[in-house]
């Protein structure tokens, strides 16, 4: 993309967007937000970054397929941890740590999985489409 303003703006906004997406993920349990929305925000931000970069193919720091796999495994693991505590699959297990109001739990792990998977999925589709366009 040629617009200089757009390029400069995206460069500035990108880190903010990434952090913001993570905040949305974190606050999801008590306020509007969550893994799905956070993932979409992250995907959009990476997408915008990719649109501005001059590289032919948008390069991501991780292959989207791997990202999807990690996400799915995270969610699955979150479910299995419940099993390990001799409770039904996907039972939420909460730790005792309270980190400025954030309590690590399997529920968060599950949401993190959703977050990664959604990001990976969107990037995957975009990448595939872009590659097709290149032809």
């Amino acid at each position: 993309m040629d617009s200089k303003i757009f390029n400069a703006a995206v460069k500035l906004i990108f880190p903010v967007q990434v952090v913001f997406s993570f905040i949305v993920l974190l606050r999801g349990h008590n306020g509007p937000g969550g893994g799905f929305i956070g993932g979409l925000i992250l995907a959009v931000s990476i997408l915008l970054r990719a649109l501005t970069s001059n590289k032919k193919k948008s390069q991501f720091f991780l292959r989207p397929k791997i990202l999807m796999a990690i996400g799915l495994l995270c969610s699955l693991l979150a479910g299995l941890i419940g099993l390990a505590f001799n409770r039904p699959f996907l039972t939420g297990i909460w730790s005792e740590i309270n980190f400025f109001g954030f309590i690590p739990s399997t529920v968060f792990l599950f949401d993190l999985g959703v977050y990664l998977l959604v990001t990976g999925m969107v990037l995957q589709v975009v990448q595939a489409l872009e590659e097709e366009v290149e032809l």
């Binding site: 349990h29 306020g31 969550g34 909460w94």
Partner: peptide, 11 residues
């Protein structure tokens, strides 16, 4: 332990 019902239902 969640105040956002939508999210609690989801996850």
């Amino acid at each position: 332990k969640g105040k956002n019902i939508v999210n609690v239902i989801l996850v």
